[in-house]
Lab assay of single mutants.
Amino acid sequence: QEVDTIELTRQVKEKLAKNGICQRIFGEKVLGLSQGSVSDMLSRPKPWSKLTQKGREPFIRMQLWLNG
């Protein structure tokens, strides 16, 4: 299904801030990505339709983390 990447990243940033989790830790533990990649993804999320399967994976992980 289509994911609203802008809304998703907004919710993730909100939860990170609320729980005092830094992007570096979130990136390493949840997404398996560097802090730079995570920062870029959270500040400039690409539309779901423009992402490859590999590009979608971190957003799917974010969704699971939010719902977890």
Rank of each mutant, 00 (worst) to 15 (best):
F59I: 01
N67E: 15
K18H: 02
V12I: 03
L31M: 06
L16S: 12
G27F: 10
G36A: 15
K46C: 03
S43G: 05
G68I: 01
I6A: 15
K15C: 09
K13N: 09
Q1N: 02
G68F: 04
E14D: 09
V38C: 10
V3N: 03
V38P: 03
L66F: 05
R24H: 12
E57C: 01
R44M: 12
E14N: 11
K50V: 11
E57M: 06
L33S: 06
D40H: 09
W48R: 01
Q23E: 11
F26S: 01
L66Y: 00
G27W: 01
K18G: 05
A17Q: 09
Q35E: 15
F26N: 00
V3M: 12
E57Y: 02
E2W: 01
D40W: 07
I60C: 08
S34A: 13
I6E: 12
M62Q: 00
C22E: 07
P58G: 06
L66E: 00
V30Y: 12
P58I: 15
E57T: 08
S39I: 14
F59T: 01
V12L: 03
D40P: 10
K13S: 03
K54C: 03
K13V: 02
G36Q: 14
C22V: 06
G68L: 03
I6W: 03
L42F: 07
K50L: 10
L16E: 12
N19W: 05
R61G: 01
R10D: 09
L16F: 05
L31G: 05
Q11E: 05
L42D: 02
A17R: 13
R24P: 01
L31Y: 03
F59G: 00
L33I: 15
V30A: 05
K50W: 05
L8A: 14
T9V: 14
S34C: 10
V3R: 11
R56I: 01
T52K: 09
S37N: 12
K29D: 06
S49H: 14
L51M: 09
I21W: 13
R61N: 12
T52F: 07
Q1T: 12
Q1E: 15
T5P: 03
L33G: 06
R44Y: 12
E14A: 11
L51A: 01
E2Y: 03
E57H: 06
N67S: 12
T9M: 02
T52D: 15
Q35D: 15
G32V: 01
T5N: 05
L16Q: 10
C22L: 10
S34N: 09
R61C: 04
D4P: 04
N67Y: 06
S34G: 08
E28N: 08
R44C: 13
A17I: 12
L42M: 06
E2G: 11
S39K: 14
P47I: 04
E57F: 04
G27Y: 08
T52W: 14
F59A: 00
L31A: 04
S37M: 09
F26Q: 01
K13A: 03
D4Q: 03
Q63R: 13
K18A: 11
G55T: 07
Q63F: 05
R44F: 12
K13T: 08
S39L: 10
R56V: 02
K29W: 04
L64K: 15
G27K: 08
R24L: 05
R56T: 03
M41G: 05
K15S: 05
Q63Y: 11
Q63E: 04
T5C: 05
M41F: 13
G55H: 08
P47N: 03
F59W: 09
E28A: 12
V38K: 07
P47H: 08
K13Q: 10
S34T: 06
Q11M: 14
D4V: 01
A17V: 10
S39V: 11
S43C: 08
G32N: 06
L16M: 15
I21V: 08
L51G: 00
T5H: 08
K13L: 03
G55F: 14
L16C: 11
K54G: 05
S39N: 14
S37P: 07
M41W: 14
M62W: 03
S37C: 15
L42Q: 03
L16R: 12
G27P: 02
Q35V: 13
